Amino acid sequence: MVEFRNPYHIEPPGALRQILSHPINESEAIELAVFQEHRYAFFYWNKWMRKNEGGNPPCLVSLDWHQDLCYPEDLEKEWLNELDLTSDADVSVFSWAKLAGNNDGHILCTAYLNLIGNIYVHCRQAPFPDAWKDEELMDKYGNKHIIKKFQTYEALQDALLASSETSVFFDIDLDFFSVKNGLSDGSFEFTYLQEEQIRTMLDKDNPLISWVFKRLKGFTIATEPEHCGGLLKSNKFLDLISDIYFKPDLFAPKCNWKWKPRY
C-alpha cells in the first residue's frame, strides 16, 4: 500500500485545477480541471458530485474526437463496487492505474456509479455504424442513463435545448478540434478546424454554450497531445480556449471569466 504524505490533498498526476466564479450565477463557484489523460476526469466528476450533497448527478456534455463509451466489464464493476469514493487518494490512484489506459472507459464507469446522469457526446468517430444509435446503461443502483451520440454540433444543440436537464459537467477533449485524426486512422496525418470555427462554436453567446453555462457544475479539459498531432498543437487549442473564456490566462493569478470581475 502506498503511504501518501498528505492523503487529503491528492489529485491525478500532472492535473491542474482552477477555482472560478460561476460563468452565470453570482452565488456559485465552479472548478475547471486540465489533464493529459482523459480518464482523470473520473476523479473530478466524483469530487464534484460529492459536493452535490445527495442531489441528482449532472448530465455530461462532451466534445471529443472519439466516443470513449466502452462499457465496464465484470471485473471493472467489481473494482468500482469496492472503490472508496470518499478517498481522493484511492480515486486518484484508481483513475491512474485501473481505468482503461486507452482512455475509453471512464465515462460509463462514472455513470455506473451514478456520478453523472445522461450522456451527450458530440464526436467524429464511431467504431461501427450502429454506434451512433442511442443506448442505455443501468447503473449499480438501478438508475437508467441515456447515452446519446451526435455527428453534428447542431444536432447536439437541438437535443440539449429540448431536454429537461438542469445541471451539466462540460467536458472537452482537445483532439475534438482535429478533423482528420491521423493517429486514429493510422495515416499519421492531421487536419484541423479553423480558429474562427472554434471561436464561433465555443462563444458564450452561442445558444448551446449559453445553455451549458447556465447549468454548469464543473468543466474538464483533456489535452491528449498525441491525439492532437503533438504537444504544440494541443497547447495551441488550450491557449485558444483560454483566450476565448478567460482573462488573465488559465492558472494565472486572479484568472476569471472575461465577462466577470477579477478580485
Rank of each mutant, 00 (worst) to 15 (best):
Q18T: 01
A33H: 04
E135D: 15
Q125L: 10
D205C: 04
E189Q: 14
Y40R: 00
R39E: 06
M138N: 10
V2Q: 07
P58F: 02
L183E: 00
N114I: 03
T223C: 14
W45H: 08
G186M: 07
G117A: 06
C70T: 06
Y192W: 11
E3Q: 09
D243H: 13
T86A: 12
E78C: 12
S187G: 07
T223L: 08
K51S: 09
R199V: 13
F170C: 07
L161V: 05
N56Y: 04
E165L: 05
K47A: 13
L75R: 04
E136P: 04
N206C: 14
F177H: 10
L115Q: 15
D139I: 14
C228K: 01
A162R: 13
L232H: 13
D104S: 11
L60W: 03
S62N: 10
Q151L: 11
S95I: 05
K233I: 03
D74P: 00
Q67F: 01
H38I: 00
A97P: 00
G105F: 01
L108F: 03
P13I: 12
S62T: 01
A111N: 00
I209Q: 06
G54K: 01
M1V: 00
K148T: 07
W79M: 13
Y245F: 15
F246Y: 12
M138K: 14
H22S: 05
K204L: 11
R262C: 12
N143V: 05
D249K: 12
V179C: 03
Q194H: 14
D88R: 00
I119M: 03
L60F: 04
Q125A: 10
Q197S: 15
H22Q: 07
Q194L: 15
I107C: 03
E28G: 00
D68S: 02
W45D: 04
F246R: 07
D205Q: 12
V93N: 01
L161A: 03
R199E: 10
F177S: 09
F177P: 06
N143Y: 12
T166R: 08
K204I: 14
G105D: 15
W257K: 09
K247F: 05
H38D: 12
R199L: 09
